[in-house]
Design a binder for these strands. Structure first.
Length: 868
RNA sequence: GCGAGAGUGGCGGAACGGCAGACGCGCGGGACUUAGGAUCCCGUGGGGAAACCCGUGCAGGUUCGAGUCCUGCCUCUCGCACCA
């Protein structure tokens, strides 16, 4: 039933790929003439199948790589696999294959998919983060951080799913529930390893300024995530007593408005507050309950603000006033000092809390339009003048801020401080399928790092994956039991593995020397090749991956391992590919497909499933746009489209679908447009193939001179797309138009110069098409009698004199409205244009003898006659 | 709430302050066909017989001229959010 193809893309594509393989086209030349160009696409997690949404990343990158090859650059375009991770292990738990086997199978399949798409990489540099030859060095990285004091262990709460009996990573917790079974997650305390990324917070923030070729939104997200805030730390002394409760505030100007102090239930001083306190029982009960609240309940903005008065009083700095100390659920232990001063008049949360617990509200910043007679109806958080603030009364609060900060520093009851929202990076995972943390615990020596020469610590091949809450490694005696590297006594290996973000924080360094068994990377090569010239990936990694990779790079720089301290010079984040998804109130997400699409397009929006128990009639489907994902049933595999239209057409549509940095909706039906174009272009160039080389296109006249100009002008815009914003959607539209013009001009080509011009235009079009539709371009290149791969021929330079048309049509306006048009030579002088415009009959009608107040001439664009 | 971005035909989207809607899908008509859910050609923002008028989320402004710049709103998307 398969219709005959419009052009023989299957053979063409096979042939082209064979040629590239023979030519070893994508083998990187690390040395030699030409500029280096490190093109990096975020390496994928080998989930098993790529869908067309993934393609956007790789096809965009491949087009760029091919363009750079044609520019004569020494291109490094490697590919690898972010191959550790939970899905493979979850599959094993559910009785599937060992993660290693399923991962390897997935890698093989996805590699083939990339090749079928025509995406070229230097596969001799392929890496997989689950390979011992790789994770050996991930462990080495850990040891570097450990030695530098940047890796440490402490007790910390983790997400525990009581139903799966396992620990979950934050990203596996959706709205407080386990991703897999939907059970609400509970906090649990475990010994965990952390990387001290907070030590680099300021630099990670400051150096964002250097990243001028990163998208603004990514920079903003990083700034936001780091979350620097300037404030003052104030000491509230418990009275009577010597203990101090420290509060961080960004509003020291409101200190005279403090009417209570609130601390987190986890606060270390809590036990001392309880000692000898008649309310100790109630306080402990409340704190315990608050601590057990799950993350979402605790941190969502509209959950109830609860608290208990400890009965203890603390003294407010400067004013010396005594206010009650409360324990509340809404203060977080991790941020600031774990305690805050309560200023109901000037903080919305404090205001709500004070109203609920009958605490006084004292205005100390007068709003510009005064204090309403009945008191504040809500907190005044804006600017104003200091009132009720002792010696600071009358100052604008911005000045009060500084003066009060000075005063508390002078009196030694506080100090200016900078706080970050960024937390240390928890890297422990109680999981099997990751790089083991190279640490042993010895009864005599304590925590001992494994010596570098003992790496890698290999994963044992046989473990039981049954989830119990501790790492499956803990159940492998041959793994756990070891000897202490220091004293030789009996010791226990750390059984946690590392977060996969650790693997991806340095992979771009390994590509330069992927098989080096002596060291993780080669500094000389890195210093020559880094930073990456163009990094391409999805926005979903805008924060964590990019921040961690930057952190690692800075650490390696500071330890003297590399000579640069930012890894990615230019970043391009392409928008998500979305696709309609169908949701039935009873059956959930239904797999999208042609039949369902046709059903909905035909006006039937009800669920096609035969059985409906909760509904009398089949309910309406909810149709909405979502990122392609397996769970929503709206992924589109590339294979059927490639079989029907060829990889080139799929590539072209993927690039054509919209500006690459924006979201785009995938529409299978639209692929045909690019297919038709390629087929037309194929037939056209084949029909031109007998046109012999020779003749000088410079002598072309009339329509063929115009054709040359069209070709060179297209060349200019396509080249600019590669050098600029990667808006290949318009570049491809330009090629459509050029191909159309070639086709229209072709039949009239007779004079040798005209034929030469035709040939020139066709060859230029083929070469411009090459980065986008490489297979067809390769075929047409040789069919025109050109030798060797089109990618070995230098990208053509456009002739600026030619890259504009001979004549232009300009608009003639009267009072800003177009009334006529005029064709003039594109280099016509302003005076000539003006007089010819004035002579235009329609212009004369519209001006009708009325005086012309002003004439605006924009050469090449328009003439505007302003009447009055 | 804070930050970033976006609102243009039936749809995806084009437009250095200068002819709004390039290019593609879809749709309409025609051709070729036993047939067309293939292909090719023509047409396709709205109104109007036409001249012409109206059209880029809304309201103002700057300008000879605004989708584009400025001011104030509205809507949507994304990120962060009891962050003290």
């Amino acid at each position: 039933m398969a219709a005959r193809p419009l052009y023989p893309f299957a053979e063409i594509e096979t042939r082209a790929r064979a040629l590239w393989e023979r030519e070893d086209l994508f083998r990187a030349r690390l040395e030699g003439p030409g500029r280096k160009f490190y093109a990096l696409m975020m390496f994928p997690y080998p989930s098993g199948h790529l869908h067309v949404g993934h393609g956007r990343n790789y096809i965009l990158g491949d087009a760029l790589v091919r363009y750079r090859l044609m520019r004569g650059d020494r291109v490094l375009s490697p590919m690898g696999w972010d191959a550790f991770g939970l899905p493979a292990e979850n599959a094993a738990i559910q009785g599937g294959k060992h993660p290693r086997l399923s991962t390897l199978a997935n890698i093989a399949r996805m590699k083939e998919q990339l090749q079928r798409w025509g995406c070229g990489y230097d596969w001799s540099r392929e890496i997989a983060s689950c390979h011992p030859g790789y994770y050996r060095w991930t462990q080495w990285m850990f040891l570097q951080l450990y030695r530098a004091g940047l890796a440490y262990r402490k007790r910390a709460p983790v997400n525990w799913c009581p139903s799966c009996a396992t620990v979950l990573a934050n990203e596996q917790v959706l709205d407080g529930a386990c991703e897999r079974c939907g059970t609400m997650v509970e906090p649990r305390d475990l010994e965990q390893w952390f990387f001290r990324i907070t030590a680099y917070a300021q630099r990670l923030l400051d150096d964002l300024r250097l990243l001028d070729r990163w998208p603004e939104r990514v920079l903003a997200m990083q700034r936001n995530w780091i979350g620097r805030s300037e404030g003052v730390e104030l000491d509230f002394r418990i009275s009577p007593g010597e203990e101090v409760v420290r509060c961080f505030t960004t509003r020291p100007d409101t200190v005279f408005g403090v009417t209570f102090v609130a601390m987190a239930p986890e606060h270390p001083i809590l036990e001392r507050v309880c000692a000898g306190n008649p309310r100790a029982g109630a306080i402990r009960a409340f704190a315990g309950k608050a601590r057990r609240q799950n993350f979402v309940e605790r941190t969502s903005a509209d959950s109830p603000k609860e608290g208990i008065d400890t009965g203890v009083k603390v003294r407010v700095p400067l004013s010396g006033e005594l206010v009650p100390l409360w324990v509340v659920n809404y203060v977080l232990p991790e941020y600031g000092t774990g305690a805050v001063m309560g200023v109901p008049a000037h903080d919305e949360r404090d205001f709500a809390f004070a109203k609920a617990h009958a605490l006084p509200v004292r205005v100390v910043i007068e709003p510009p339009d005064g204090i309403p007679p009945g008191g504040l109806a809500q907190a005044h958080v804006g600017e104003g003048r200091q009132v009720n603030s002792g010696p600071f009364d009358g100052l604008p609060n911005s000045e009060g801020w500084e003066r009060i900060a000075d005063a508390v520093e002078k009196e030694g009851v506080g100090r200016r401080r900078v706080t970050f929202r960024l937390r240390d990076w928890l890297i422990s995972r109680q999981r099997y399928w990751g790089a083991p943390i190279p640490i042993v615990t010895c009864a005599a020596c304590g925590i001992v790092p494994v010596p570098e020469e003992s790496l890698p610590i290999l994963l044992p091949p046989d473990v039981e994956f049954r989830p119990t809450g501790e790492s499956p490694l803990a159940r492998s005696p041959e793994f756990v039991e070891t000897s202490c590297p220091k004293c030789g006594g009996k010791a226990r290996r750390e059984t946690d593995t590392m977060d996969t973000f650790v693997d991806s924080s340095w992979y771009f360094l390994r590509y330069l020397s992927p098989r080096d068994t002596a060291r993780p990377f080669d500094r000389a090569l890195l210093d020559a090749w880094l930073p990456v010239d163009q990094y391409i990936g999805g926005v979903e990694h805008a924060i964590l991956h990019l921040l961690y990779a930057r952190f690692f790079t800075k650490v390696l720089h500071d330890l003297g391992h590399v000579g640069f301290d930012e890894p990615f010079g230019a970043l391009f984040t392409q928008g998500l590919i979305t696709k309609v998804a169908y949701q039935c109130p009873e059956h959930g997400w239904l797999p999208a497909g042609p039949s369902l699409e046709a059903r909905v397009a035909g006006g039937t929006r009800t669920c096609p499933e035969p059985r409906h128990e909760r509904f009398e009639a089949p309910p309406e489907l909810r149709v909405s746009l979502h990122k392609m994902s397996k769970s929503k049933g709206n992924t589109v595999p590339p294979e059927p489209l490639i079989e029907r239209f060829g990889a080139d057409a799929v590539r072209l549509y993927t690039l054509f679908v919209g500006p690459p940095e924006k979201e785009a909706e995938w529409d299978d039906a639209s692929v045909v447009g690019q297919y038709r174009f390629l087929a037309r272009f194929h037939d056209l160039v084949r029909s031109l193939a007998p046109v012999p080389a020779g003749g000088d296109p410079k002598g072309a006249k009339g329509a063929f001179d115009d054709l040359r100009r069209a070709a060179h002008s297209a060349l200019r815009s396509v080249s600019e797309a590669f050098e600029g914003d990667f808006h290949f959607n318009t570049a491809i539209a330009t090629l459509h138009t050029l191909a159309d013009r070639i086709g229209k001009a072709a039949p009239a080509a007779e004079a040798p110069a005209d034929r030469a011009a035709l040939r020139e235009a066709a060859l230029l079009a083929v070469r411009m098409l090459a980065p986008f539709a490489p297979h067809l371009a390769e075929e047409l290149w040789s069919s025109m009698g050109e030798k060797g791969s089109v990618f070995r021929r230098a990208w053509p330079a456009y002739d600026p004199a030619l890259a504009k048309s001979r004549e232009v049509e300009i608009a003639l306006q009267v009072n800003g409205k177009v009334r006529s048009r005029l064709v003039v030579p594109s280099d016509a002088a302003e005076e000539e244009i003006r007089s010819r415009a004035l002579a235009d009959e329609r212009v004369r009608e519209w001006t009708a003898g009325r005086p012309i107040a002003k004439t605006v001439v924009v050469p090449g664009r328009l003439v505007n006659f302003v009447l009055r």
